[in-house]
Design a protein around this nucleic acid. Sequence first.
DNA 1: AATAATTGACTGACCAGTCAGTCAAATTAT
DNA 2: ATAATTTGACTGACTGGTCAGTCAATTATT
Lengths: 234, 234
Amino acid sequence: MSRRRQANQAGSVARRMRALRGAASGVKPARPRPSREQRSAARREAILAAALDEFSARGFEAARLDDVARRAGIAKGTIYLYFRDKESLFQDLVRDMLTPVVGTIEAMGEADLPFRALADRIADFFVREVYETRRRDVIRLMIAEGPRFPKLAEFYYREVLSRIIAAMRAVLARAAARGEVPAALVDFPQVVAAPGLIAIVWSGLFERFEPLDVRAMMKTHLDLLLRPGELPCP
Amino acid sequence: MSRRRQANQAGSVARRMRALRGAASGVKPARPRPSREQRSAARREAILAAALDEFSARGFEAARLDDVARRAGIAKGTIYLYFRDKESLFQDLVRDMLTPVVGTIEAMGEADLPFRALADRIADFFVREVYETRRRDVIRLMIAEGPRFPKLAEFYYREVLSRIIAAMRAVLARAAARGEVPAALVDFPQVVAAPGLIAIVWSGLFERFEPLDVRAMMKTHLDLLLRPGELPCP
DNA sequence: AATAATTGACTGACCAGTCAGTCAAATTAT
DNA sequence: ATAATTTGACTGACTGGTCAGTCAATTATT
């Protein structure tokens, strides 16, 4: 009986697909076909999403792959069809989540705008696309687990952090040449980014005791660093 | 029979030790034998030191109490004579290491000095007594494990962080009243402390790729925040 | 001798990673 | 079109190993 259903489904799907491809005449395209590749990609995504949940809730060591599997709606063994091992899953998670934003930030840095405008845009991008998304959890995870995963820390430094630092340095150098920011800032781009990091750490530890207005903090910090002419004196 | 051998060995070791001590004491007592309390305190310290090594090398979950015991030169069971369980050991470690510095910082904040002088002193204290000591590792550990130990995060917030924030806020409010710093800074003491935190996180992740000169970074940051030339307002 | 401190073998729970087997889908043959 | 065959994605029970915490036995102290 399950056999029967199986044959039916297989047959009907094949027919539908062939119909779709062969003649556009089909009255109803109805079903978006689940090609093998698509299903595979979707599954990979599901595993990564579940892994992010578990890793950020319990940390790398304490997270159980049984739970990741259950959350992704698959069996544990399936994880090993997509990822070599637990550590590899973690690394791929970090890569998939963070690499994309680096390019964006590099591109933004190239725009020829007054420093303040550029800084505001990048800060806004950070809040919207990192701080207010799951990427925040990934960065928190990197901070927490990085010291114990030298390989991962190196990958992260090479692919993410050094590129962002370099981009910021270029922006700051241009701004310093125009006299928009003190030259000393070029040596420590970290100082400019500091409030973003503070916010991520703070939110993981103390949000429930004392919420933090990230946007306001970053704005305050920029105001202080930049000194727009003269500060308004009361 | 293994029973017999075991008893023999144990006996011989004990006898040897007693003989050694006895012979030595024949001529010079030399050793003021440490009281029970002293020995007990020393042992507790040894366990905490070993725990810090293991926890900061492998993280809370991955650290093995067998290793802590071996490093402290005792048997695993002994740990349980001094600490209720692994988590309790961790919590006591954090408490013992960090609570003492809070009082010092609070006291320093009360000195009636120009802001810049005060800030320099506190920054220097931070570098010497936190950044360049094992306390740095404890803070790193708090950052890494805090999100998964709500109890510990709460304790840390209550006993450490909120007190430091409060002290800084008081200092900043006084300085703002004198026009030494912009008033906006009073709302975000985190911004002033940010480079210190950055340095701790950075050292754990990227020190080996790109060393960071903490003192220089903190000085740069303070210079930028304070603008000696333009402040205070006329 | 009596008491306290210390030991380390042991237990029970836990979990990453494996692999023999299942079944739906794809392919080929009729 | 239908049936037969092949593929490979997927499963989940199982293994081997780990480790926090316990406790009976041993050793040190008073």
